Amino acid sequence: MGKSNKNSRRKFIQQSAIAGVGLMFIPNVISAFGKESRSTLENNKKMNIEMGTRQLGKLQVSTLGAGCMSISANYGAAAKIEEGIKTIRTAYENGITFFDTAEVYGPFTNEKLAGEALAPFRDNVSIATKFGFDINGNSKSGGLNSRPDHIRKVVEESLVRLRTDRIDLLYQHRVDPNVPIEDVAGTVKDLIKEGKVLHFGLSEANVSTIRKAHAVQSISAIQTEYSFMERSVEKNGVLALCEELGIGFVPWGPVGMGYLTGQLNANTVFDPKYDGRSNFERFTPQNLAANMPIVNLLKDFASKKNATASQVALAWLLAQKPFIVPIPGTRNIPHFKENLGATDIQLTAADLQELEAGFSKLKVNGGRMNAKEMAVCE
Rank of each mutant, 00 (worst) to 15 (best):
N43S: 15
L355I: 08
K361P: 05
T209P: 00
Q320E: 06
E281H: 11
A302P: 10
K45I: 15
E182H: 09
T268R: 07
A128H: 02
K273D: 14
S70I: 12
F301E: 10
F121M: 05
I327C: 04
K304G: 13
A349E: 15
G276N: 13
P326G: 01
K337Q: 09
K189Y: 05
K11N: 12
S37W: 15
T209D: 02
A119H: 13
A349R: 08
S72G: 12
E194A: 11
L239I: 01
N145T: 06
E82F: 02
S8M: 14
L355W: 02
S158K: 06
G52D: 02
S141T: 10
G143R: 03
L317Y: 05
R163S: 12
V269I: 14
D271H: 11
T187N: 12
I13E: 10
Q311R: 10
A78Q: 10
C377N: 15
A185H: 02
L59S: 06
E50W: 07
Y226L: 06
K3P: 12
I26Y: 09
A221V: 00
V184E: 03
M69I: 12
S360E: 14
Y105F: 08
A375K: 11
S146E: 01
S220V: 00
N206D: 11
I324S: 00
V197F: 03
R10I: 15
T209G: 06
N94F: 08
N365A: 10
K196N: 08
F336I: 10
I30E: 15
V238M: 00
G57K: 00
Y105T: 05
K299D: 13
Y259Q: 08
S126A: 09
G258K: 06
E83A: 14
I96H: 01
T268V: 06
F359N: 12
E36Y: 06
N291A: 02
K304Q: 14
K196I: 02
A357D: 13
L113M: 09
S139K: 08
I135S: 07
G2R: 09
E234W: 03
N339M: 07
K337D: 07
V188F: 00
R282D: 08
K80Q: 13
N265V: 09
F228A: 07
G248V: 01
S158G: 10
T63V: 08
D300V: 11
N7G: 13
M24R: 14
K112R: 10
T87C: 13
K35G: 15
G195Y: 06
V21L: 14
K337M: 11
V233I: 13
P120K: 05
I81V: 15
D275H: 06
P27H: 12
T308F: 03
K80C: 13
V125M: 03
V207S: 00
L41D: 10
D300K: 11
N94L: 06
L239G: 02
L314V: 04
V29T: 13
K235G: 07
